[in-house]
Design a protein around this nucleic acid. Sequence first.
DNA 1: TAATGGTAGGGGAGGAAAGATCTAGCGTAG
DNA 2: TATTGCTACGCTAGATCATTCCTCCCCTAC
Length: 957
Amino acid sequence: MAPIPLEAGQPRSQAPPPKRRKLKDQADATSFTETLRKLKDQAGTTQPDADNQLAWPRPSLPAIHTDTDAIVFQQIDIEEHQEVGSPPAIRIYGVTAQGNSVCAHVHGFLPYFYIHAPRGFTSATCRDFQNHLNTLFGGRAIQNVQLFSKKSLINYSGTEDVAFIKITLADLRSVPKVRGSLERGEVGFRDLFTPGDSLLSYENIAYTLRFMIDHNIVGMNWLEILPGQYKLRQENHRVSLAQIELDCEPSALFSHPPEGDWSKIAPLRILSFDIECAGRKGVFPEASVDPVIQIANMVTRQGESAPFIKNVFTLNTCSHIVGSQVLSFDKEIDMLEAWARFVQEVDPDVVIGYNIANFDFPYLLDRAKALKSTKFPYLGRERGMRTEAKDTHFSSKAYGTRDSKNTELQGRLQLDLLQVMQRDYKLRSYSLNSVSYEFLGEQKEDVHHSLITELQNAGPESRRRLAVYCLKDAYLPQRLMDRLMCFINYIEMSRVTGVPFNYLLSRGQQIKVVSQLFRKAREDNYLVPAYKGEGSDDPYEGATVLEPKAGYYDKPIATLDFASLYPSIMMAHNLCYTTLLDKKTIERLNLVLDRDYVVTPNNNYFAKASLRKGLLPTVLENLLAARKRAKADLKNETDPFKRAVLDGRQLALKISANSVYGFTGATVGKLPCLEISMSVTAYGRQMIEQTKNQVEKKYTIANGYDHDAEVIYGDTDSVMVKFGVADLSKAMELGAQAAAEVSQTFIKPIKLEFEKVYFPYLLISKKRYAGLYWTKPEIHDKMDTKGIETVRRDNCRLVQTVIDTCLRKMLIDRDVRGAEDYAKNVISDLLQNKIDMSQLVITKALAKTDYAGKQAHVELAERMRKRDAGSAPSLGDRVAYVIIKASKGSAAYERSEDPIYVLENNIPIDTKYYLENQLSKPLLRIFEPILGSKASSLCESFFFSPLFRIDKGRGGE
DNA sequence: TAATGGTAGGGGAGGAAAGATCTAGCGTAG
DNA sequence: TATTGCTACGCTAGATCATTCCTCCCCTAC
């Protein structure tokens, strides 16, 4: 395609107004758009709003005077770049407020790390050491060696700074080599470094993140490149497709903190797309064989409510679709290459879709390869950079293990809504269909992949039907994103934590804490050690869960919670890497217990804030204070967009504060510190115990209250108190009073809050309960269920609805009889095969590759893989199955089957399994506390319904 | 290779182990 | 009277079944 011309050098007065250029006025209209127009005319499609539809190019560029104009843009992607033989550089991609795309090359920032300076190492030694290292590692790997006064982040060892050697390297590849060699003690130098003595290195962090940290750049913030300090690139030196491409040094950058006016978002172009492939019967499409037949696209500007481009590329003719442009092609390769040009011309800043990372992108690329297209795989912003799908592997305790693919589009962000859903929402199924139903309240027309070929071959009308379906699938991700505000939330998350946007879906929680920790450490002149430890298998002691007094409570149960328990413990007791003490230091510095330091319940020593304020507590205070501000601003804000940003912000801040504790306990992490995490949980255990005792001691008949209060349950940071009163408002009053009293006995900012009352309350066991949730005495807010089948995803839907309905009848309607009758009816329906199979589908995550024993979902996944590898569940997916009838005594893992397969082959379902293994126990568990011994007879009456007895009767008696 | 937040806990299912019961096979009496 | 066929019965080892306990696994609470 023709490059978009840069109009630099034009006098400002001659610059065209910065409004959207219309294609027909445009002298440099590309041959491609001409082609499309012709194609469109040939196909006889009419354009209701042709001008708008074809407004693909970005806003034209105002003239830029490099001496007086600053380039102000929102950066979206920062990449490292190094060619062999030249120094490393940073590439920043972004978009201006007017919507012009920017690519800035920043030169002169070099990677570095620190090591401890041995005694006797002075500034004068630096040059010699540099030369020594350079002879060891060859050439000019080491750019500079300097001496600095700093402190290690770990341990309090007095107030004075210590000497550190900063080693700056000339290129990225030498970093691990030089650092590793020093760490392993392979370097000897005079009598300062003895070979064999291992060293600790400091500030080990990825180059791009290092750059961002050192220049106060956080993810997705606004940068200003100062006038006179940059050079625009001439056309023949350009490497990107951006409208503005420039070179500068780091000092030319001014980074705007994302606050106030600078919390705005540039008019980013968002492309949402979806492809359809014509597969063969019964086989999942394979790129080497099966053609791509349609690609639907929606392009929206961030902040606008409707797409300004809606089109669909089709193989073969397709009837007109109102409101969408249809672009038909005879040859598949032409369609693919036209689409690639379309992507380059639309030049999206963000590409979204559903499962684009693991399906659409790899498929398109593989297909283009199979068709031997040389023009297709260039979808990024870097010229001549081949787009490739790479295999990636992600494994985390929180997000599970997953093999996936990543297709880097230099300078363009990607947001695969499937990945967003899998990370942020716990759902039974993540198909676009069920997700749309869940969040948009609508089903999409689901065309099974085996039907697509038929529709494609049947004629222009049925291809039109397919295209409509495809367009809808391209629009749904955009609508999901708008509805769930994930883009805004992710932007806020990257701004709050400082990590690049693309880390949010590709990396874990730790990197966010690391980013914040390094930033704060740098501010306070600390160096973060490069910890090299192997993860330990055995967990440390966590929180207390109070022994529940299980039962049905027909009196209000007040719930008291510690607000942000773990962060507030860390703040209250100044727990931090920088305040951690050992016995030796205490003796050496003559520190005094309780004046200078504290002993935690875990017998660790930490300096008090009077001696040194910890860094983690400061980070947490900032986060929580910022959250308070965001919440306050949210209250006053009326503009819905700004409200969304603020809400996303406060959420990001909360999550961010909570993950600090987890970070210190992550033994497979960057900087674990079990002294901190174990002390935190130990304090927590002490506190919940103390709270329980205090409440039970104070609210007694002996102290003039009507009843003896009783803590019937509590988990980690909460206690459930039965004050004995029957009146809701009285319980709330006592709850608030007790919370305030208990709060007083703890160090600030620890705070116990009265949150809600459960009434009635059904306490089944630890982490399992249900109740009506009241925050005001007039009306209940909702029915709340924790841990039981209604909130679990590994039961069939039937169990969920039956338990939920029974609970509602019992707790809200107070109709136990009705609940019993309802349950009996459902069981009767089940045994008579009257229950829809969709209600009987069980889903479980395929969480690992090597299972020790046989399990229903694992065995089924394996069987499905043998049938059709493409459509079988893969690592990390949820496997849906039903239990089918089979010979007596066969294990459940032999009887699990794919629901679709069951439908297609008319296989009978084992309803008895659903009664015995799915329904009966959960039902018994919720009825038992209310009915007592009658419950078991009730369940017997369930089981001895006539149909059931035939099967069950014999062996039992 | 580099990277991967924590522990507590319920409950389902499979599998091992220990125990109970059944059964095939054998020997023997009659 | 001696030998053989048959049944009944007891015994044993192995098979089978039922139970318990443990572990694995998933998912949730916080």
